[in-house]
């Protein structure tokens, strides 16, 4: 199987430090996850996650400070709402919601980080690569005739706009 592409968006203050701790403590953890450091989970535009999937990621992990511990006091509260909405929308976009995971890991939880990464990687390994996920190179554009009925008629004056 081709190598999995897993992307992790980590907050600078908690999870990135936690992952760092797991590394310096030489805890064993799988290496597929590519970590991107952000100032806060509140910075995680849901489009970052969708773009990652669209460009061929097989799984996306977001991790930040525990609720109540945000360096900016409330960034992760906003993130929690946005990411909850996103995870519920993923099936409609055609992405298995299990491929997305968001969680909280503090700077002192190196062991928890290793655990989160291991479980997430195992889960995506079990699911395999995203089928039809050659998103990086979308198929050649289907011919114009494919879906367009009578284009001249469709743009009739029904849609005329007041000048």
């Amino acid at each position: 199987m081709a190598e999995l592409k897993l992307i992790g968006f980590l907050c600078n203050w908690c999870s990135y430090a936690g992952a760092d701790m797991a590394g310096t403590a030489r805890m064993k953890q799988p290496g597929e996850l590519r970590i991107i450091r952000l100032p806060c989970t509140g910075r995680v535009n849901p489009l970052l996650i969708l773009k990652a999937f669209q460009q061929g990621a097989d799984g996306v992990l977001v991790s930040g400070c525990h609720p109540g511990d945000c360096h900016y006091n409330e960034g992760n509260y906003y993130a929690r709402r946005r990411l909850e909405l996103l995870s519920r929308m993923l099936p409609a976009f055609g992405i298995e919601p299990e491929r997305f995971h968001f969680t909280w890991v503090s700077a002192s939880e190196g062991a928890r980080w290793a655990d989160v990464v291991t479980q997430f990687t195992r889960k995506i390994e079990a699911m395999g690569k995203m089928s039809g996920a050659e998103q990086g190179t979308p198929p050649a554009k289907a011919s114009c005739e494919a879906g367009v009925g009578a284009p001249d008629e469709q743009t009739g004056s029904e849609d005329a706009v007041p000048a």
């Binding site: 993923l90 099936p91 409609a92 976009f93 055609g94 992405i95 995203m130 089928s131 039809g132």
Partner: peptide
């Protein structure tokens, strides 16, 4: 989800 991906 896979069918939807192809559908979209």
């Amino acid at each position: 989800p896979t069918e939807r991906r192809l559908f979209w």
